[in-house]
């Protein structure tokens, strides 16, 4: 049967093409989070040995990394410069990580709360308006009540940005008239 020769060749070629991929596709190295039969716990991505300080992770400035001042109380001042950029970053991060529960305005009526999560306090109540920046940094870092710690999800710089933005939200609803910028004050008096 000579006619079948091209067919056989084609079939063989297909087999060859089909067979030549997997070795290079899955090489003998790990991808992030791949499982491993080498380590007892099955994880290729190893956890840090306790007490390890990665480069750039030295927490030498206690106020910056804990939100606690030298007097043992929450830091009253931001340890980073308060700029428009910081506040814009804070808004973005707040809307990603905080707004699901706290709501975009900080009233504590986010979508997850509407679906049954415990309602957090509104940022606009007097107790929280009186809290210093360091308090909000501390809550993001360590959690509070039913809120988990967000330390692994939100880096330190972003936590301060969020703290700054929380103050912006608070100010948006509560500010003494004589603290308003002249322009806003004029508009307010005009609207009276």
């Amino acid at each position: 049967m000579r006619t079948s020769a091209p067919l056989v060749a084609a079939a063989l070629a297909l087999l060859v093409f089909a067979g030549c991929r997997q070795g290079m596709y899955d090489q003998a190295r790990y991808e992030p989070y791949e499982d491993s039969d080498f380590f007892a716990d099955g994880r290729a991505s190893r956890l840090l040995v306790e007490g390890t300080v990665p480069r750039g992770w030295l927490r030498a400035d206690p106020v910056l990394y804990t939100g606690i001042g030298a007097d043992g109380g929450f830091a009253a001042e931001l340890p980073v410069a308060l700029t428009r950029e910081l506040v814009e970053r804070g808004r973005q991060r707040f809307e990603i990580f905080c707004s699901p529960c706290h709501g975009r305005t900080g009233d504590g009526l986010g979508m997850i709360v509407q679906r049954g999560f415990k309602q957090p306090a509104s940022f606009h109540e007097a107790r929280l308006r009186a809290m210093p920046y360091g308090y909000f940094f501390d809550v993001v870092t360590n959690g509070f009540g039913q809120m988990s710690s967000y330390a692994s999800m939100v880096p330190v710089a972003d936590r301060w940005a969020i703290a700054a933005y929380v103050r912006v939200l608070q100010t948006s609803r509560y500010i003494a008239v004589d603290e308003l910028p002249a322009e806003d004050r004029r508009r307010l008096e005009a609207a009276r």
Binding site: R2, T3, P6, L7, A9, A10, A13, L14
Partner: peptide
């Protein structure tokens, strides 16, 4: 004839299938 035709046609089909 089939072999001559096949050299072109079958190889082309095999390529297309692959």
């Amino acid at each position: 004839k089939v072999t001559l035709f096949g050299a072109v046609f079958f190889v082309a089909v095999a390529g297309w299938v692959a």
